[in-house]
Design a protein around this nucleic acid. Structure first.
Lengths: 141, 141
DNA sequence: ATCCTAAATGCAACTTTGTTGCAAATATAT
DNA sequence: ATATATTTGCAACAAAGTTGCATTTAGGAT
């Protein structure tokens, strides 16, 4: 997604275009991995209030600018949404890969989606898939 | 898994069989859904120290008695492990279902596993799949 | 360009969640 | 019954996130 369309995405949700929001958006755009609240606070904490950063992250998540990725540890990381993120077509699916060596979490969203069967009666609206292992870069070194 | 074999499972890991551990185990056995630390503390907090409960949960998780289930909220829930939980056969996989209506998280571990392709270079050792939607019971009412 | 208003931010205080160190208690092997 | 390593409780601490409120600011209306 382009820089411009990101700003537009923020505005299109009715949110105001503030310096803090632009900076948070920039950080997510430039990061090639998913980020936690802590990560963002470490980058911007001296310039902006902790509370405002938390609120920015929640607002972005509520408005489909970023999405939360569950991890098996007790923290959540966030990543930019794709264009079709909010519009749950058939099944809103998110693939992520947590690398045990470098500790990063990567989005694999653009990869093929295999239908996974559920037991009778269960109706899924979204699915979150988190792989854990060794990433491309780390497995080559 | 039977009550007896659960106690044995605890003992087989070299852990002592204390009242607190038995109670925590009982709670997990009787719960038909996954539980958070908070859930356990709410049930036992007046009888046992908060810290001991946290430690019991970590110990159980470290020893393969229970396993952590990532959620997209900022908390982790736990569930009893199946017999083969610790022995990562091919790919250690966990399927869970979060119901938006009742808020419970169910284990679907016994269901068929479809292989999901990963991009080149990525080597997965485990995969955690969290569905979100409406569960069997809730969709009937 | 200025004004107006709702929304966003900063600050202080607070809550919740989890951790650490250590002394007292207890499970289990002998 | 005793010894010892493990577990528990307690106190203090640390990290993560929330709430209320006063101030500031973005962006549309004038």
């Amino acid at each position: 997604m382009k820089k411009e369309s990101l700003k537009e995405k923020v505005k299109s949700t009715g949110l105001k275009n503030t310096p803090l929001r632009e900076e948070v958006l920039k950080i997510f755009t430039e990061a090639r991995k998913a980020l936690s609240s802590k990560d963002i606070i470490e980058k911007l904490g001296k310039k902006y209030d902790r509370v405002s950063i938390f609120r920015t992250i929640s607002t972005f998540a509520e408005n489909g600018v970023i999405h939360a990725i569950p991890t098996s540890s007790d923290y959540v990381v966030y990543s930019l949404c794709r264009d079709n993120c909010a519009t749950a077509e058939h099944l809103d699916h998110h693939y992520h890969f947590f690398c045990r060596r470098c500790g990063n979490i990567f989005c694999l969203n653009d990869f093929e989606f295999y239908n996974i069967k559920l037991p009778r009666g269960y109706k899924a609206e979204s699915v979150n898939i988190l792989f854990e292992g060794v990433c491309k870069d780390c497995s080559q070194n």
